[in-house]
Design a protein around this nucleic acid. Structure first.
Lengths: 212, 212
DNA sequence: TAGATTGTTAATCGATTAACAATC
DNA sequence: TAGATTGTTAATCGATTAACAATC
């Protein structure tokens, strides 16, 4: 694999989409695909698709195209999907529980090992066989259990405190669903899912569509 | 307001973030802010911030900066947040319920008017005083109740069918949480929240961080 | 008025698209 | 071999940054 250090974020964010589409092609027993066909499926230009893949070395074969299965595998490797990730969820309201179920049922390779909350009504209940622990236990838990990804599903106000504890506890990445701009040290990867930003973008385009 | 027709998606997607930060400044009773200070808070360059705002006309005042409250309001107007949106949720598993609660508690102006599911165990239960209806009723419901936004929280396989019914039922926008690439007609705005794409991007950067 | 900071033009940078030689 | 399609370079386009005149 080439040196990834200068591959743009724009390229990386397209990879999961390619992979998702390739997965569906695999399910339909499609063996090969050209950049032109992929263009029709993704909406990206064929040229861009070839550029994207060539960032990581040649995955295709001239005159033939790309082997669906091998391309799917390669993209999975690039994204780091050939290994397991231990995850914990902090904040076990509806959203936390939804993420837990999502990871449990759909995402092979992503393992929820513990869940935490401050609410006495929630502490102790089991979600997919995992008992929700008191948030007080978080620091101790992280000392004894190396965790790859911490998932923040708390309110806005608690998010930074949770993030600080996760960082201190040496998680490698944080998946943040709280509507807050949290700060983490440089060696921790932060991925935000800001639902309200997404919704506000939707309303912008709804009104813009109305006008035109 | 200027003609918005050629404002890039990149700019639009920064607006909710600006607004969120301004909201926090408002809560702290900050009255004015310069593009330089906003730069420190957002990570965008001051130059970019001024460019962004100037797409919509001058919000600032030379020698002074921007009035926090007025800028907050202006961005809200641009995003269409000065009106109400009627929304329905299709698919009332954990995620659907989480979104319902989220909209109910946090998002003034976004009103869930109905919820639908196919699961007999879920049909009939109440979520925030809204009784989950049989998915069979969706088409009829949309004929009698104009809806702005349809929210898809179903499985991948049902997503396109739901989208088709929503489009036929004249929703203006679709907020899609299903891990599928759905197709909608041009007059309907589609906003995807692909959780797995987000998670796969996170794993990429975790491994990339590891390597460097 | 002097200082500060915007609004806006020009320069730069990066990402996308086009073109085509390489080659399967 | 001929046809197809990639890999890759060059051209274009758009977005970001820099600079500074306008002006509060």
């Amino acid at each position: 694999m080439k040196d990834n250090s200068k591959i743009s974020n724009a390229v990386i964010r397209r990879l999961p989409r390619y992979r998702r589409i390739l997965e569906e092609l695999l399910a339909k027993n499609v063996e090969r695909i050209s950049s032109n066909e992929l263009s029709a499926l993704t909406g990206y230009t064929a040229s861009q698709i070839r550029q994207d893949f060539n960032n990581f070395g040649g995955f295709g074969q001239q005159g033939y195209g790309y082997n669906v299965k091998s391309l799917f595998t390669q993209i999975g490797l690039i994204l780091g999907l050939d290994r397991e990730y231990k995850m914990i969820i902090v904040g076990c309201g509806n959203l936390g529980q939804a993420i837990a179920n999502y990871a449990n049922y759909y995402k092979r390779g992503f393992i929820i090992t513990a869940m935490f909350d401050v609410n006495p009504k929630i502490i102790g209940i089991k979600i997919n066989d995992i008992e929700v622990q008191d948030y007080e236990n978080l620091e101790e838990y992280l000392e004894n259990n190396p965790i790859d990804i911490g998932i923040i599903c708390t309110t806005k106000n608690s998010a930074q405190d949770v993030a600080d504890k996760l960082v201190a506890g040496k998680v490698k990445g944080i998946w943040n669903f709280a509507p807050a701009d949290i700060q983490v040290s440089d060696d921790v990867v932060l991925e935000n899912v800001h639902l309200s930003d997404s919704l506000n973008t939707l309303t912008y385009y709804i009104n813009y569509n109305d006008r035109t």
